[in-house]
Design a protein around this nucleic acid. Structure first.
Lengths: 215, 215
DNA sequence: GTAGCATAACTGACTGGTCAGTCATTTAAT
DNA sequence: ATTAAATGACTGACCAGTCAGTTATGCTAC
């Protein structure tokens, strides 16, 4: 009845279980990315992970929980990385913004994680749980960081004071579009992320910057 | 043997056929938008259009062709509208850019058509035909127009000469993100398209404009 | 008009294949 | 020897696509 045993918290068995869980998560990402949630077959996930279908159900209760569990597993390392960016408070807002955007390009857009981004966009409306979770844990944090940088820039005089709605969205929009483009249209018209990044930063920083006499 | 008859090109019958085809296309958009391609049931499309399942197959050979036909049908009025924008060549590049972006916000983002945009992003990788068609017929035209405006702006001295890769994508990115946001996260954090549009235009025009002394 | 006929449009029960989820049995670890 | 992990054949629900049968439309002759 009582949960006495398990003196060793990381026995060989538990290590293997964890490894298998990760393998399943990787396989799930691969399969769901390839064909989307509805068309993905549990058998395919199992095969990709090198196990049988029954095993999948030892680790996840249902297809839906496999999907949600996969997204959450794949998100958590990103969250830790993001947190590590908040150091070094005495650099300019300009540099901090550049740094954050570069982080996003290299750690999300140029990785498997951009698939997560697309899956959230594709399947989000059918998985309100997940969309909400993603919004609460990823987007709102990212927004807070970008908004803080913009605020800092306004206070230091680097940026002009744009009170408007949706500024933060517009600042990062170029990056999201790059990610989507890579996944959907790159085969017809490829883009180079590095130089795209330069354009993005140039355009946005110039757009934000104070003392730009227009007209 | 010969195809002599059909003197009246728009008989009552043909009109009704066309009306039914449109009803099916509307129903298909509604159902595919709601649940995505794979999870959509032909029976649901039929019910939404007020016909039986068999009838759907009198108008479209397969689910896939229904989907592609729907996307193409829904795109064509937009293409005509876009073409109508190319008039009035002696306004400033700034005004033309504003006008084009406003067009996109009001005629695409704030309409059913944004669903098409999302479906292309979600299902595009599984329908290479469709993604290519969309790229060739919608995106490349849109790009050409925006690029022409930017070029004009550079020549007139309104905009600085940003040679970088992906400038056009970055200019319109804010609008795409607004559309995606509305469809996926608006319920958790709503955005107001009008003031979002103002911010977008302000940021981008300032970013493009010449004589902005940064650093 | 309208009766009769030909053809087009539509219907929905049915089929065959697919796949999420189960569980009795087998295999591996301790 | 005992317990945990893994298997894969099986089931039941679901659904794209079919087709024999039904209904509506238009046409011709009267």
């Amino acid at each position: 009845m009582s949960e006495v045993a398990e003196a060793a918290p990381t026995s060989r068995r538990e290590q293997q279980k964890e490894a298998r869980r990760l393998a399943l998560v990787d396989a799930a990402l691969a399969v769901f990315s390839r064909v989307g949630y509805a068309a993905a077959k549990i058998d395919d996930v199992a095969e990709e992970a090198g196990v049988s279908k029954g095993t999948v159900y030892l680790y996840f209760d249902s297809k839906e929980q496999l999907f949600e569990g996969m997204v959450k597993s794949k998100m958590s390392p990103m969250l830790n990385n993001v947190a590590s960016l908040a150091i070094d408070p005495d650099q300019s807002a300009t540099d901090r913004l550049k740094q954050h955007l570069r982080f996003f390009y290299t750690k999300v857009l140029d990785t498997d994680r951009r698939q997560i981004m697309r899956l959230i966009m594709s399947e989000g409306p059918n998985f309100p749980h997940l969309a909400e979770f993603y919004h609460a844990n990823v987007l709102s944090r990212g927004q807070a960081m970008i908004n803080a940088i913009i605020q800092q820039g306004i206070e230091t005089g680097e940026f002009r004071n744009m009170a408007g709605h949706g500024l933060m969205h517009n600042v990062v929009a170029g990056a999201l579009v790059a990610g989507i483009w890579k996944l959907v249209f790159d085969r017809f018209q490829p883009i180079d992320l590095d130089s795209y990044f330069d354009t993005h930063v140039d355009l946005i920083l110039n757009g934000l910057c104070a003392a730009a006499p227009r007209d």
